[in-house]
């Protein structure tokens, strides 16, 4: 734009016109509409602090808006379940890297909670799937964060802070997600083995779980490669199995290197399954006490919340600073 021109206006397609989203924004309402909380599939309802009792509950609209297989992106409303998402993508041989999470969970729910499933080692953090988010702000306005393309650094990256925000900054209404080709071959193997040695020998395994004695390994890829990596695992004493072990309901966060020094004989007050290479430990015990976040981080979280939701009307009782460790109380 040369300096003499007037200000530019957004292109017509940047203004949200989906009636389902507009209705959702109306339902959420503005500041005058008072506190409001959002529910999805309630599969992780107990995380992120407790929703204040009596808060008016809303649900995001559901359904696939657009899927162009050659684009390798899908646009869905946030209330769509992971099962519905997968069913839409499966015929095209694609999927979104939200594997290992409950099929009845909603897309908006898992993004708002922000905790990846047990294939994070190979598939990356679930936040990497989110390209664009449309949410209803505390003022009741529809806001678009990010963009539709697979690569985008236009402006400040609001999508990042929405993932894991527990709906405290805005209520997700619709998202565009990156898809990936489904693998041609996959295999789970398990057996007593040293996870460190196995991890160092394999090339980018998708999941490596360990309960202190036994490892579970998940491989994906081209058949010849899965076969070759399987051979390494067989040599290490693993055998083919149907799938991963059930994951204990508690969860805490460790540095990946800390798992290397976990010893099977260390005193434990319950079963655990650790995600090797990632640092997530699913445990039946409350886990080590996690150091409270630094005061500067707490202050930044507070400032962001105040700027996005000054009256605290969005999901009162929720707080992303609530540690994800500890036993789930399924309240």
């Amino acid at each position: 734009m040369s300096a003499g021109h007037g200000p530019l206006a957004p292109l017509p397609d940047r203004v949200v016109r989906d009636p389902a989203l507009l209705a959702f924004a109306d339902e959420v309402g503005g500041v005058d509409a008072g506190p409001v909380a959002i529910e999805g599939g309630r599969t992780q309802w107990h995380l992120g602090g407790h929703c204040e009792p009596g808060t008016r509950l809303v649900r995001a609209p559901a359904g696939v808006v657009a899927f162009e297989p050659a684009e390798m992106t899908i646009q869905v409303r946030a209330g769509t379940t992971l099962d519905e998402l997968d069913a839409a993508l499966e015929p095209a041989g694609q999927r979104v890297a939200l594997q290992g999470l409950p099929g009845t969970a909603t897309v908006g729910g898992v993004l708002s909670v922000g905790l990846s499933g047990p294939t994070r080692l190979g598939h990356g953090h679930l936040r990497e799937t989110l390209l664009q988010a449309r949410y209803v702000s505390a003022e009741g306005l529809l806001v678009t964060a990010g963009g539709a393309t697979v690569k985008n650094v236009t402006g400040f990256d609001l999508c990042r802070v929405l993932v894991g925000s527990f709906g405290t900054l805005g209520l997700l209404g619709e998202v565009i997600l990156r898809t990936r080709p489904r693998p041609q071959a996959a295999a789970w193997l398990s057996g007593p083995a040293d996870p460190t040695a196995l991890f160092d020998r394999l090339y980018r395994p998708v999941s490596l779980l360990w309960d202190g004695a036994t490892v579970w390994l998940y491989l994906e890829g081209y058949p010849e490669d899965v076969e070759a990596q399987t051979a390494i695992a067989l040599e290490a004493g693993l055998v083919p199995v149907d799938g991963p072990p059930p994951l204990p309901s508690g969860r805490h966060s460790a540095e990946p290197a800390a798992l290397r020094s976990y010893r099977p004989d260390a005193p434990r007050s319950g079963r655990f399954v650790a995600e090797f290479g990632v640092g997530v430990v699913h445990g039946e015990w409350s886990g080590p006490t996690q150091a409270p976040p630094d005061a500067s981080v707490v202050a930044l979280n507070g400032r962001l919340k105040n700027l996005f939701d000054p009256t605290g009307r969005l999901n009162p009782g929720r707080d992303p600073l609530t540690p994800s460790n500890g036993k789930a109380d399924h309240r």
Partner: peptide
């Protein structure tokens, strides 16, 4: 370095 740092993803912002 921990798997799931507490709070909003300020790193990402």
């Amino acid at each position: 370095l921990g798997a799931d740092p507490a709070g909003l993803d300020l790193r990402g912002a």
